[in-house]
Amino acid sequence: MSENLQKTLAEIDRIEHQCKTSLAAAAHLQEVEKIKTDYLGRKGSVQNLFALMGRVDADEKPQLGAALNRLKETLQAEIDNRAASFQHQPMAIASFDPSLPARLPAMGSLHPILQVMDEVKQIFTAMGFRIEEGPEIESDYYNFEALNIPAYHPSRDMQDTFYLNGKYVLRTHTSPVQIRTMEKQKPPVRMIAPGKCFRKDTPDATHSPTFHQCEGLCVDRGVSFADLKGVVQSFAQKIFDDKNIRVRFRPSFFPFTEPSAEYDFSCIFCKGKGCRMCKNTGWLEISGAGMVDPAVFGFVDYDPEIYSGYAFGMGLERIAILKYRVNDIRIFFENDIRFLEQF
């Protein structure tokens, strides 16, 4: 036996022993997999030994070949055995603790008032209304005059207004968008105008100088008060996701509608039985509505003999307060993360 062969056979024994030792020490399947790669892989120890075949004499090759094949088979069997021993055991990583906190990706959110606005937009878009916008700094003409609220009219007292220099105000409602829309479009018109409004109200639990309103308008031939009632009722039942909500219209006065109404929803808390939230009336006051006053049509050159229409408003904070049971309007504008992250 040549010296080379002897050396190589000794190396075979060593590798067999070393591999068996490693396998015995392996703590889990992944380690066994690594051992398999290290010994039997394409660049593994056994493969390296096959490369040594060239170094031995031709007559000794069969002997070495047989020894190598035996080694390969032995290790394969040992590895398979060891791997099998792990098959039915749970992952035994000492350090794995599923109760460690998750890695949280950064999370954004949408503001609750604007989420309500989104819902309102979806409901009316589905009913075929287009969403319109207008400026927050509005002219006296659009905010008041064209809505049939002349200067020195007592109805101006109904809204405490922030004035700017000249003939401008911070809009007190989104109703001016009605006028702007009717000026650029002939009937039929179906639109809603959600947006920010301003009134000179000292902030408290139910007042904020900045608040949000959604105005709605529908003008066509033959539009009636019954249509207004229907659309408001549809909206009520959808926004609070309750087919049993009833809607009540009470006569009221707004300069830009005639007949005018205040509308109430049956209380969503007590189902109209009477509770603290509805002051035991069974009704929640929501907002105002009515048939567009012919004087308003006069400002936008629509013929009131041909067309009629209805308009309605709603306060988004009011709806959000009812939906989310918020008890103070001011919290919407503090933007405290502990509040925002709840939505």
């Binding site: 878009t125 009913m127 075929g128 209304f129 287009r130 969403i131 319109e132 916008e133 039929p188 018109v189 179906r190 639109m191 009636s224 008060f225 019954a226 249509d227 009632k229 229907g230 659309v231 009722q233 549809s234 809607v247 009540r248 219209f249 009470r250 006569p251 007949p259 109404a261």
Partner: peptide, 26 residues
């Protein structure tokens, strides 16, 4: 309407099939 009672005016439900009011892209 006031004396007759707003309550007695029916709730009309119209199906709007007319798509003249387009989406506001902005």
């Amino acid at each position: 309407a006031r004396l007759y009672g707003y309550d007695k005016i029916p709730f009309a439900r119209r199906a709007w099939l007319d798509q003249s009011q387009t989406i506001n892209e902005r």
